[in-house]
Design a binder for these strands. Structure first.
Lengths: 212, 212, 212, 212
DNA sequence: AATGAATGAGACTTCATTCAT
DNA sequence: CATGAATGAAGTCTCATTCAT
């Protein structure tokens, strides 16, 4: 499946440091990696799809894994942002910030992110399951700053009595399960990602995490 | 990582049609496929880990993919069961069956299933992302009978007013997202799967799917 | 240049631990390595010359360097023997052992050895110049036992007053320079290795190392 | 190992026809060729070590082998000089010229030459073993004029009765074996090249070639 | 049935060389 | 003239699969 125009525009932003030909390689690699998986993809096929000589891959990315890393790194780095959305940041410490607003902004933001990077997300996901190194990077990115930011904010909500008093792990899992379920259905099973569907998921999460 | 004793006992049941030597191959293949992914695993490594000659793989399983299919088929076939748990079946049509009981039994059952087949689930999951054929089989298994069974039961609950009035897709996604999130955390990120954690997930799902 | 019949008989003894097909590979590799050097030889050419599939090289010898090592190891191990020729051993401690006899037996023995392993010697020599690892192995083989054996015997000859009183290094260099010069002329410049030529070299060494 | 200052000064003389940038390439190539051998060296590494673009190699030296030839040619041309040292020339036809003087001057001169061109000598040596073309050039340089000059002078010494009456091949081999043994020990095995060591080698050669 | 040696296509990668800038 | 990106042939090595024993 070829990248959509939107994807290509978005990827153009992610890979600004690369030359035009390098971008061709990256675009092609994203396509094939997302379709068949990293291990089942040959550099020959990538080169052919990019319309360049195979050697280019190695002069720019050192080796096949270097190409993979160049692709997934920017997405990995943005997957668990160190800072929350400005809107949330500005209102969270004010007493009128509801759980509903918090979760809505949070989940919407991540859905937009995941959808914008659909193809790369597929690759990251597949490697997450198969590659210990990638898994470690994800865990690291998660714990490094995101965890602290989130737990800080969740604590505020807990103290205000609008959030269920569970361990943060369970709360975060609930949020991410819903978000991921939505995206995976969209990415792999042609399920819609329209406003109503998203709203149901957000609504489900809000209810799930509200105290009884 | 080697299979646990529980896994091996469970797998012994799944693969009763195979000879002892074939089971050795299957056990070994499950281990390596789950660890590194199908594409990154060589038949030589499987044979070595099983302690048999490489040729044995081909005499019974035709080829590498045949071995994969032999492994994932029984799990695929049970992943979306055509019939619900006896307890649910017996009570669902009675008016005192609560959403809470329904979801608790349903989710508990799938968690038990997924956990019992942890290694194979990893393999199925990875192939789901990378292999169109496997994805089609999953979709097929899902829609064939499970969908009808579930929608029938969910309809009953909806009519009784204890279930939110959303499309079945959204309801099923909510259930499966929670369940999968729990299992994936357990399988890939060393998260616990103890009673409290499971209860929180189930509780979250119940709240999520209850009408306001 | 193909191996001579003598070489092949000799090599059959050196490589007894290998199967027939492995020996074919070794014979072919010796030929090409000796002719063009290790680095300039492709495994494809070796396989073609041996009449086997290229993969065989890797299943038996791990990699290209493994094949080189299999070839040079037995020769390296015999190049600087830990024990001298029986004849020398038996007579050296007797008072009538002359320097002439000592050197004649010693040099003749090494010439026979070097000539019998002509092709492999070429390979060893080339690697000696280009590969630090091989150089270390040679130095190690030299110092491990050969040095002690030789210096012990040379000491006896010195004490008897029939050997020039130089450092052992200089004496050994004189012996090996002559021997090597003879062999290299034979191997690379089509010079003869007949009795008269050898006798002149031995005679030169005897005179060179006799006290004035 | 980088070139010593002496080497660089010496090389500056050998490669006067080249521009500064070309000399940088030559210096770098000498280093790497001497260390790993011609075949195992990439032009990319040479360019990197020289601090120039890879294309420069090709604009002046045509190709990799052209670079090798540019390096070894001046040394090959001087290895077997057509004319002997002035001192020898002037005195050889006089009756008081001793074998001792002859060999001392001759060997000292070659040792100085070989030592001054140590790195290039390593390259020449390695190619001598692996490359038929280089071997032919050496043989040609040897036979072209050096052989005639030497045999002429050796004949004088023979007639005067101060030189052993062997074929010239054997005499020249004795001289060159000793000289080469000295240099090789110095180049590859960290052996000393001090006055005493050299004197022993020269002394050995004199004795070896004196009539009994 | 079982073995694992053998095969050869094809994977990843290197590298001498070219050529547009 | 200088650069180094680009090329693609060729190299090393892997691996699914076959088949003689």
């Amino acid at each position: 499946m070829a990248n959509s125009t939107d994807d290509m525009l978005h990827q153009a932003q992610l890979f600004n440091d690369f030359t035009a030909k390098q971008k061709l390689i990256i675009i092609a690699a994203i396509d094939v990696f997302a379709e068949k998986g990293y291990a089942a993809t040959s550099t020959k096929e990538i080169a052919a799809r990019a319309g360049v000589a195979e050697g280019n891959i190695y002069s720019r990315f050192t080796n096949k894994r270097g190409l993979l890393n160049a692709i997934i790194t920017p997405v990995l780095d943005q997957m668990f942002p160190a800072e929350l959305d400005d809107f949330i940041k500005s209102r969270l410490n004010q007493d009128y910030m509801s759980l509903e607003t918090f979760l809505t902004v949070l989940i919407q933001d991540r859905i937009t992110f995941l959808q914008s990077n659909a193809q790369i997300i597929k690759i990251v996901l597949s490697e997450l399951l198969n590659d210990t190194q990638v898994r470690k990077r994800v865990i690291n990115n998660f714990t490094a700053q995101y965890w602290q930011t989130m737990t800080h904010d969740l604590t505020v909500l807990k103290q205000r009595g609008v959030l269920v008093d569970w361990p943060f792990e369970d709360i975060l899992r609930a949020i991410w399960s819903t978000t991921s379920g939505l995206i995976l259905g969209f990415l792999y099973f042609n399920q819609p990602l329209d406003a109503e569907t998203v709203n149901h998921s957000i609504s489900a999460t809000i209810k799930a995490l509200s105290p009884k």
